[in-house]
């Protein structure tokens, strides 16, 4: 399978997936850590991909999404943004319901 197809399949087969440096338990970057903590606070299940464990994904997802940094958070197959946008949605009180809806309709 082509790497772009592989990424596309990962993104679309999980209602919520975060591409991050490290894991939610052992994040290896402050931004990935904050993103994972914020997702946890919403109390919904989410998938994660540790980009340090898959070099091909690490190198290609930036062009897949036209987004040059990590973390990248995908909800219902769409990029919603990185850490700043996620925290902003959380602060505005919009994130939890967005994630819950994505989980329900999956």
């Amino acid at each position: 399978m082509d790497i772009m197809e592989k990424i596309d399949q990962q993104v679309k087969s999980h209602p919520i997936v975060v591409y991050m440096k490290g894991t939610p338990q052992f994040p290896q970057c402050g931004f990935s850590s904050r993103a994972a903590e914020t997702l946890k606070k919403c109390g919904v299940e989410f998938a994660y991909i540790n980009v340090f464990e898959d070099r091909e994904v690490y190198e290609n997802i930036k062009s897949y999404a036209n987004w040059p940094t990590f973390p990248q958070i995908y909800v219902s197959g769409e990029l919603i943004g990185g850490c700043d946008i996620l925290l902003d949605l959380f602060a505005k009180g919009e994130l939890k319901s967005m994630l819950e809806n994505a989980s329900k309709t999956a």
Partner: peptide
Amino acid sequence: VLQRHRLVYDALGDLMQ
């Protein structure tokens, strides 16, 4: 907001790497 961030990233181009 997503598009605004992309505009900034695009403007920075290779500096992001």
